[in-house]
C-alpha cells in the first residue's frame, strides 16, 4: 500500500481543490441559491413590494396630480370619505355579483368541459386547441368583440334574444343598469372557462385509472364513480383553484373598463375598476389607494376565511 507507484501518483495529482479549500462548501451552499435568485428578488422587491408599501402610505395622503398644492398627510381622511362614498358601496356590491356569477359559470362550464375532454372522441386534439383558444385572446380584444356582439344595432345577440322571447325588443343591454353587468360577465365566462377546464382536466388525469376499474368491479354505477371517486379527488384542487380564481377575478378590471367603463350610472363599477378610473381619469392617487387598500383588506379576510374553512373541513 505504500508502493512507489501510488505515491508518485499522489504527487502528480496536486489537488486543484486545495486553493479553494478555504472557502467552505457550506458557505457556498448557503450563498449559491441567492446568486440565481437575486434578479428575481430585486425585481419583485423594487417593482412590487416597495410600491405596495408606498401605495398603502398613499392611502393616508392627499395626492391629486390635478391639484398639486393640496398635497400632504391627511390621516384617515380618505377612508372617512370612502365610508361616505355611495359609489364605493355600489362598487362593493357589484364586485360581489361580478365575482360570484363569473366564478359560478366559469367553474360549472369548465368542469363540464374537463369531463368531456377526459373521454375519447374523434378529433379531440383539434377540439381541445379550439375550445381553449379564448384563453389566448388578448383581453381588450375579447372586450371589444363582446361589446360588439351586445350592440343593439349591429350586434346579433339582442336580436337573437328577442327572437327567443327573452327580450321584448332588441335594446341595449349594456345601457340598462339592471342588466349591464351581464355583458362583462358573459365575456369573462367566455374568457375564463378554458382556465378551469385545463386545471380540472389536469386533476382528472391525475386520478389513477385503477380506482375506476376497482369501483366498476365493486359494482359502482357511472354516477357513483363520479360522486365517490372523482369529486372527492378533485375537491382539494377545486377548493384552492376557486379561492385563487375568486381573488383574481375580483381584481380583474380590464373587461369592465373597456366594455362599459363602469357605467351606466356606476352599475358595472367594481372596486378594481373604480381604483383604476380614480387613478387614471381623476389622477387622485390618495383616494385610489384607499379604495385599493379596502379591496385588499376584503380579499385578505376572504382568503383567511376560506383557509379556515378548509382546515375545518379537512379535520372532519
Amino acid at each position: 500500500m505504500e508502493g512507489k507507484a501510488v505515491i508518485s501518483r499522489k504527487q502528480n495529482n496536486v489537488m486543484p481543490g486545495e486553493t479553494r479549500a478555504r472557502r467552505s462548501l457550506y458557505w457556498q451552499y448557503m450563498v449559491e441559491p441567492f446568486l440565481y435568485l437575486s434578479p428575481a428578488i430585486v425585481l419583485i422587491g423594487l417593482v412590487m413590494m416597495i410600491p405596495l408599501v408606498i401605495g398603502i402610505s398613499y392611502s393616508f395622503q392627499s395626492i391629486e396630480l390635478l391639484n398639486p398644492f393640496n398635497t400632504g398627510w391627511v390621516g384617515f381622511e380618505n377612508y372617512i370619505d370612502l365610508w361616505a362614498d355611495r359609489k364605493f358601496w355600489i362598487a362593493l356590491e357589484n364586485t360581489f355579483w361580478w365575482t360570484f356569477w363569473s366564478i359560478a359559470f366559469q367553474f360549472s362550464l369548465g368542469l363540464g368541459l374537463a369531463l368531456l375532454l377526459n373521454t375519447d372522441f374523434f378529433g379531440k386534439k383539434l377540439f381541445q386547441a379550439l375550445v381553449f383558444l379564448p384563453w389566448a385572446v388578448p383581453t381588450f380584444l375579447s372586450a371589444l368583440t363582446w361589446a360588439w356582439l351586445f350592440n343593439p344595432v349591429i350586434g346579433p345577440l339582442p336580436h337573437w334574444l328577442t327572437a327567443l322571447g327573452i327580450l321584448s325588443e332588441p335594446y341595449n343591454i349594456m345601457g340598462d343598469p339592471d342588466l349591464a353587468m351581464w355583458g362583462p360577465i358573459v365575456a369573462n365566462i367566455w374568457f375564463g372557462v378554458p382556465f378551469f377546464a385545463i386545471t380540472l382536466l389536469a386533476a382528472l388525469q391525475s386520478i389513477p385509472g385503477e380506482l375506476y376499474e376497482a369501483a366498476e368491479i365493486d359494482g359502482a354505477s357511472a354516477w357513483q364513480s363520479f360522486t365517490k371517486i372523482t369529486l372527492p379527488f378533485l375537491a382539494p384542487m377545486i377548493a384552492i383553484t376557486v379561492m385563487l380564481r375568486t381573488i383574481w377575478i375580483a381584481n380583474f378590471a380590464d373587461l369592465i373598463f373597456v366594455m362599459t367603463g363602469g357605467g351606466p350610472a356606476n352599475s358595472t363599477q367594481i372596486l378594481s375598476s373604480y381604483v383604476f378610473t380614480t387613478a387614471f381619469r381623476k389622477l387622485d392617487f390618495g383616494y385610489a389607494s384607499a379604495i385599493a387598500v379596502a379591496l385588499l383588506a376584503i380579499l385578505l379576510v376572504y382568503a383567511v376565511f376560506v383557509l379556515w374553512l378548509r382546515k375545518k373541513l379537512v379535520k372532519i
Partner: peptide, 27 residues
C-alpha cells in the same frame, strides 16, 4: 462525493482534508 456538505468532523483523502473541496476537484 462532495455533493452534500459535511456538517462536522473530518474527511480525508490520502491524508488531506477534503471537506471543503468541490466534487469536481476530488477526482
Amino acid at each position: 462525493a462532495g455533493l452534500e456538505p459535511i456538517t462536522g468532523g473530518d474527511f480525508l483523502i490520502d491524508g488531506k482534508r477534503m471537506n471543503d473541496v468541490r466534487p469536481r476537484d476530488r477526482d
